[in-house]
């Protein structure tokens, strides 16, 4: 270390640093996903399309189709909750990052990670209430969904959405999704969209940008 230690300068810098708190970017438009928990057949074509797009080995899964089943034979039910990154309004992953690898885009609210800046401390992975950041043990890095920004910028939709055989997964401005105003095959006629379903972490933790058409057994009051 060639620089001399200037205590006063350090003190001042530390003081300045301590005053920094995290203020989330307010995007011009916040994009988010909508998923129909009932009509989804749980095929995971979206997951595989995502893995192919992102060149992932088995292990890390940017998108996760989660099966919920319950009841007692023969009165049973099954539904699916499908999440990748929820591109939260106030992401918990972002302020944990010591290298500034995680960022939230002003224009569309996409939370992205530049994994080339990642040192693999895995704080973001732990902080996310939804399991979005995925540790890649081969590269010793964390990676995650970026909503296929390249496709968004080309005027298309993410690979997972375009993979959905049932057309129950879509993206759009999240406010429109929550109001069920988005024109999308994911939301059927007369269907309402909710922001939270059972067993999902408290949305107040990070305000995830996702909406669901819930199953009757998956509704929260």
């Amino acid at each position: 270390m060639s620089e001399t230690i200037e205590k006063a300068k350090i003190k001042e810098a530390v003081k300045r640093r301590k005053l920094e708190t995290y203020t989330p970017v307010k995007p011009e438009v916040q994009l988010g996903f909508v998923h129909n928990n009932v009509d989804c057949i749980g095929c995971r074509a979206c997951e595989i399309a995502c893995k192919d797009k992102n060149g992932l080995a088995p292990g890390p899964r940017f998108r996760r189709v989660q099966y919920i089943e319950g009841g007692t034979y023969p009165n049973v039910y099954v539904y699916k909750v499908n999440m990748s990154c929820n591109h939260c309004a106030e992401p918990a992953c972002l302020p944990t990052c010591p290298t500034g690898a995680i960022f939230k885009r002003k224009q569309d609210g996409i939370v992205d990670i530049d994994s080339t800046l990642c040192i693999g401390c895995r704080r973001c992975e732990a902080a996310c209430p939804f399991g979005a950041p995925q540790f890649d043990p081969v590269d010793n890095l964390v990676k995650k969904c970026n909503l296929c920004v390249d496709e968004i910028e080309a005027g298309r939709k993410p690979y997972c959405v375009m993979a959905c055989m049932m057309r129950v997964l879509d993206i759009g401005p999240i406010e429109e999704i929550w109001d069920a105003e988005l024109e999308t095959p994911a939301i059927g006629p007369e269907e309402k969209v909710v922001r939270q379903v059972k067993n999902m972490a408290n949305i107040e933790l990070t305000k995830p940008s996702i909406g669901f058409v819930p199953h009757s057994k998956g509704r929260v009051k």
Partner: peptide, 28 residues
């Protein structure tokens, strides 16, 4: 504004960006 809200101090300051891995060929 764009990134971590000034939360991070890096001597080797690098701007985070999408698809920093090179080459990342886009579909088009």
């Amino acid at each position: 504004v764009l990134t971590a809200g000034g939360l991070v101090e890096l001597k080797t300051a690098k701007q985070a960006r999408a698809f920093a891995y090179e080459p990342y060929p886009k579909d088009d």
